[in-house]
Simulated scan of single mutants.
Amino acid sequence: MTQHQLAALIYPPEIDPAPILEDAARQLHARGVAVAGAIQHASGPCNMELELLPSGCRMAISQNLGSGSLGCRLDASALAEAASIVRKAIDNGPELVVFNKYGAQEAEGKGMHDEVALAITVGIPVVIPVPERFLPQWSAFTGGEFTALPCTAQAVLSWWEALVKASRDAA
């Protein structure tokens, strides 16, 4: 099987990939891997934050629309600011970039879409959760050139180990 530098954690609607991605990123960081990117945290329906790596700072990316509202709204300007910070982290040449997810924004070419493309283009390995419903858009975006993983931290760690081994063997 070809070991791609791009890994997608494919997940169904009932799974929250954020804690899984966070666990994998923390374990890799603890092993000395230079990790950049963004991990999403949610504490309530209208309180989404991105933890920006490697700094660990958190940035709110949602807006509460008030007591009469039935939902919340993504704060596009906050997401753009977070994307800019992730872009700078990619420019510093990490060993791995993690992204919070390939969601509706990215499927429309917004959100962290360009940062994902940048990391891929410069050859930095990427891991990103992809909801099953956006798998067709993801496949089109990547040309099908990715490793599909089950949504577990162990799958990420095994993928990373295989990628490092393949890189060593090729050298």
Rank of each mutant, 00 (worst) to 15 (best):
A34G: 01
A30P: 05
Q105S: 14
A83F: 00
A76M: 13
A78P: 12
H113V: 00
S84M: 12
V97Q: 04
G68V: 09
E145Q: 14
E49R: 15
E115W: 08
A107F: 01
L135V: 07
I61P: 02
A30I: 00
H113S: 12
L28T: 05
C151Q: 06
R87F: 08
A36P: 14
A78Y: 00
A60E: 00
V98R: 06
A117T: 01
Y11E: 02
L9P: 08
E145P: 03
F134Y: 12
I90V: 13
V97A: 07
A166F: 00
E145L: 10
L157C: 14
P129K: 05
Q154T: 11
L74E: 09
G111S: 01
G123F: 11
T147H: 13
S139T: 15
A7D: 08
E161N: 12
A148M: 11
V97N: 06
I120E: 11
G103E: 00
L53Y: 02
V126Q: 05
S69G: 05
E51T: 10
Y11R: 02
A34N: 07
I90C: 01
E14I: 02
A8F: 03
V35N: 07
V126M: 06
A119T: 13
Q27C: 06
E132M: 14
W138R: 02
P13L: 01
H29W: 07
S62K: 00
A140Q: 10
L50Q: 04
A30Q: 15
R31I: 12
N64E: 09
T147I: 10
W159G: 07
E106R: 10
K165G: 02
Q63H: 09
A78C: 11
S84L: 14
V126S: 11
A153S: 15
A170H: 09
P19T: 12
S62D: 14
D16V: 08
W159H: 11
